[in-house]
Simulated assay, not measured.
Amino acid sequence: MPNDASIGDRSPVIVTLRSELIRAELCSYGARLLALYLRNADGSETNIALALPSLEDYAAGNSSIGAICGRFANRIRNACYREQDSIVHLSANEGPNHLHGGGTGFDRQPWNTVAMDSEAVTFSLAVPDGDQGYPGALNARVTYRLLGAEGLQCRITASSDRPTIVNLTHHAYWNLTGDFSRSAADHMLQIDADAFLPVDDQLIPLPGRSPVARTAFDFREPALTRERLAGCGDGFDHNFCLNGPRGTLRPVARLEDPASGRSLRLSTSEAGLQFYLARHFTPDITSREGRPLHPAAGIALEPQTFPDSPNRPDFPSPRLLPGELYEHLIEWQFGSG
């Protein structure tokens, strides 16, 4: 398995999927979306998904940029949960808590490339029982597939030989301007959610769900992200409780750059959406295009079940039993303006 400074011994495989509008670059290291280019009216292309200059830069950082996060995306309080009569202890990699699968999560592992053609690529990963503390040997698979000229689908599946927990998401950072030296706070955002989860100072959900109505978290109608920042405390890094039934693919969010007219519509089959306006990037990190990153260079829209759900029986369950298949569908539809 790779460590913090290595992409592993296996040479990463990079695959490009092309349509009339999209050029998606995908990589087996972390089953990662490296870049997403949209074709402009003049024939030029603009990358709207944050990309680093080299694969080694992904291994050296800790932002899960463009990768599949797991075995459990987001946070688990005190890096533990109860499984029947015992406590399962996980890798603690954010203070006392567990984040995005632990110190060597799925974003830091070399996946196998098991199938590819002009429209799709499939990556697979097998992790042993006890990896990062999780019970059960887990087999995960991710397929990226073009959907006509304007869409890209990410289908994630997993199975386990023991009762375990699974919550897999995709962690792209979007900036529809294509300029990652600019803040993504100037985007218009819409999220189909009537409630969100307030959090403590460690970003662990507090008891209960809060209505978005009459708060800075109300994105039921398109709103300029920057104008909402003053009312949300330390910034946006919160789970939104999506409307509609879990397990059904449905559109849940729309992001738009008013200046260029570029847009992104996100659909998911999951129950929650973590909206994170980045605030941790530093100018010594550069994008693939050579620009120093703005602290808020991108917006992450991470569909998933709720944070800390293994410890919250009132939240959608992340539990996976032997013989069951975990499945999460994510789709993006893009507009070039």
Rank of each mutant, 00 (worst) to 15 (best):
T164G: 09
D200K: 14
A172Y: 02
A193F: 09
V166S: 08
D192L: 02
A195S: 08
W174D: 03
A184K: 03
G148W: 03
W174G: 01
A172H: 05
T177A: 10
Q190V: 01
L168N: 04
D179L: 09
Q202K: 15
E150N: 13
N175H: 05
L152N: 12
D194H: 11
A185P: 02
E150H: 13
T177G: 06
D200E: 06
N167C: 08
L206F: 12
S183V: 08
Q202D: 14
P198Q: 13
L206N: 12
A172S: 04
D186R: 03
A193C: 08
N167M: 07
T164Y: 05
F180D: 03
I156A: 10
L203T: 11
Q202R: 15
Q153I: 06
I156H: 14
F180T: 07
A149V: 10
H170C: 06
V166Q: 04
D194I: 04
F180G: 01
L176F: 06
G151Q: 10
T164H: 03
S183M: 06
S159G: 09
A185W: 01
C154L: 14
F196T: 04
D200C: 10
L203S: 10
L176I: 03
Q202V: 12
L189Q: 00
F180K: 10
Q190A: 00
L206C: 13
D194L: 03
R155I: 11
L168K: 05
Q153Y: 14
Q190T: 01
